[in-house]
Each structure stands twice: as structure tokens, then as C-alpha cells.
């Protein structure tokens, strides 16, 4: 499957999420931000404390009834970049911290592992946030938390037309492949023509959309959405207090 096809599937599945969201999306956003702030402020050498922060994704998956193993595997997408940057640590930090079966473990290996763990945990927290509630609910949550309306409108527009334009690009690429007699890969020149053609189609589509929206009374921002909106409950307040207190304790109290 090509990147384009994968992107089409990812965008289609992201709009509603998996429906396992057990709390209000605003509560989840605040909990995630608190978790990331506390987790990323742990010193790189304090690996044990950092690993304990994995309890949040594990427990969140259990509460939502989804597999942590799958989430873990999906979060490994972040590994190539963090390993590339972190792998230099063992070469620069050579102080021995402890010895296991005669093998010296240096500070560099501890901080390298710490970088990898930080990358994985932050990715898992993000996936829990968006995967459970979906992008549309996430945007509405952001709006009710006070982000400017123009940004949430822009994000909703972008997300809505992403699927359409990705399909357009996929159709164009398939048409080119069908006429290409097995030739694979776009040269820079033909890529420029491909992207330029896509751009001109895009502008045409944007003009049609604008006319249709103006005809329906569009005034620059999306109307508020009231149907089936989840309200903030006592359980959300409790969850927010419990989670944030737990993260602060994990960060500052020595076990």
C-alpha cells in the first residue's frame, strides 16, 4: 500500500475515532497536557521514574477497553528519529552507572534509553487523545477550551477536504501509472506538472466551495454545533484531579 493510500485510510478513520472515549474530550486534552509536562520534565538519567509514567497509557487503554500492545506497536513510528539523535549519547557520556554480570552500563546508555522511552510515551499519549475521540470532537474540545475560532474553522476545513484531495491525487496517480507502461517514480519535472495540475484543480474546487458556502450564509466561521455534545460531568472533574495529582506525585515524590 502506498503512502497516499495509507493517508486516505488514516484521514477517513480519524474523523470519529474508535468511540471508546470514556470522558469528555476537554478533560482528556487537559490530562494529556499535564501528563506530557510532568513526563518531559523528568531528568534523562532518572529512567526508573520515567518508566513509571507508562502506567498512564496502560491504564487509559484498559479503561477504554483497547489493546495497549497495539498502541505500543503503533507508537514505534517515532523510533527512527529518536534513535538517530539519541544513539550519540553512549559515545559522549561514558561514566559507568552500574554493572550487570560484568558489563558496565554507562550514563550514555541510560540517557539513550530515556530518550526512546520519552518518545514512545509522548506518542502513546497523543494517540490515546485523538484515537479515542476523533479529530472533529477534538477540534470542538479545543474551541470550547478557548482556542481562536479562525484556527478551529481552518482545522475543520483542512480535515474535511483532506480526504477529498487525497482521493483526487490518488486518482491522478493511478491514471498516470495506467498510462506509464510500468515506469515507476515521478521525475522532478513530471512531479511539478502533477502537483501543478492538482493545485489548479484544488483552486477550482475551492472557488466552488466558497460560492456554495456563501449561498448558505457562511460568514467566515463555522456555526456552533450543539447536537449530542457531551457535557462536563462530575466524573470528568474527578478524573482530571486524580490524574493530575498522580502525575505530580510521580514526578516529584521519590518512591
Amino acid at each position: 500500500m502506498s503512502r497516499l493510500e495509507k493517508a486516505v485510510i488514516a484521514v477517513k478513520s480519524s474523523s470519529t475515532g474508535d468511540g471508546c472515549g470514556s470522558c469528555d474530550v476537554r478533560c482528556r486534552i487537559l490530562v494529556t497536557v499535564c501528563y506530557l509536562c510532568m513526563m518531559l520534565s523528568v531528568a534523562p538519567a532518572d529512567l526508573a521514574r520515567l518508566i513509571l509514567f507508562a502506567l498512564y497509557p496502560v491504564l487509559a487503554c484498559a479503561i477504554d477497553g483497547v489493546s495497549y500492545g497495539r498502541l505500543f506497536l503503533r507508537s514505534c513510528i517515532v523510533l527512527p528519529f529518536v534513535v538517530l539523535i539519541g544513539i550519540f549519547n553512549p559515545f559522549y557520556e561514558r561514566t559507568t552507572i552500574f554493572t550487570i554480570a560484568g558489563v558496565d552500563i554507562s550514563l550514555g546508555w541510560i540517557t539513550f534509553t530515556s530518550i526512546v522511552v520519552r518518545g514512545l510515551l509522548s506518542m502513546q499519549a497523543l494517540m490515546i487523545l485523538v484515537g479515542r475521540h476523533g479529530f472533529t470532537a477534538f477540534c470542538r474540545g479545543l474551541r470550547s477550551l478557548g482556542i481562536p475560532r479562525f484556527l478551529s474553522t481552518q482545522l475543520e476545513f483542512l480535515h474535511r477536504y483532506l480526504g477529498v484531495l487525497l482521493m483526487e491525487a490518488l486518482t491522478m496517480r493511478r491514471a498516470r501509472e495506467a498510462r506509464g507502461y510500468g515506469g515507476n517514480g515521478l521525475t522532478l519535472k513530471s512531479w511539478g506538472e502533477f502537483a501543478g495540475q492538482l493545485f489548479i484543480r484544488t483552486v477550482g474546487r475551492a472557488e466552488r466551495i466558497n460560492r456554495a458556502m456563501l449561498a448558505r450564509g457562511f460568514n467566515g466561521s463555522m456555526p456552533s454545533w450543539r447536537g449530542n455534545e457531551q457535557s462536563w460531568r462530575l466524573s470528568d472533574t474527578l478524573m482530571l484531579i486524580i490524574c493530575c495529582s498522580a502525575f505530580v506525585l510521580l514526578r516529584f515524590v521519590n518512591p
Binding site: F150, T153, Q154, E156, F157, L158, R160, Y161, L162, V164, L165, L166, T202, V203, R205, A206, I209, N210, M213, G220, S221
Partner: peptide, 9 residues
């Protein structure tokens, strides 16, 4: 606004 949304896409 729609142009920016579609251009982003």
C-alpha cells in the same frame, strides 16, 4: 478561509 483550508489539503 475555504481557500486556505483547501490549499492546506
Amino acid at each position: 478561509v475555504p481557500l486556505m483550508g483547501v490549499m492546506g489539503a
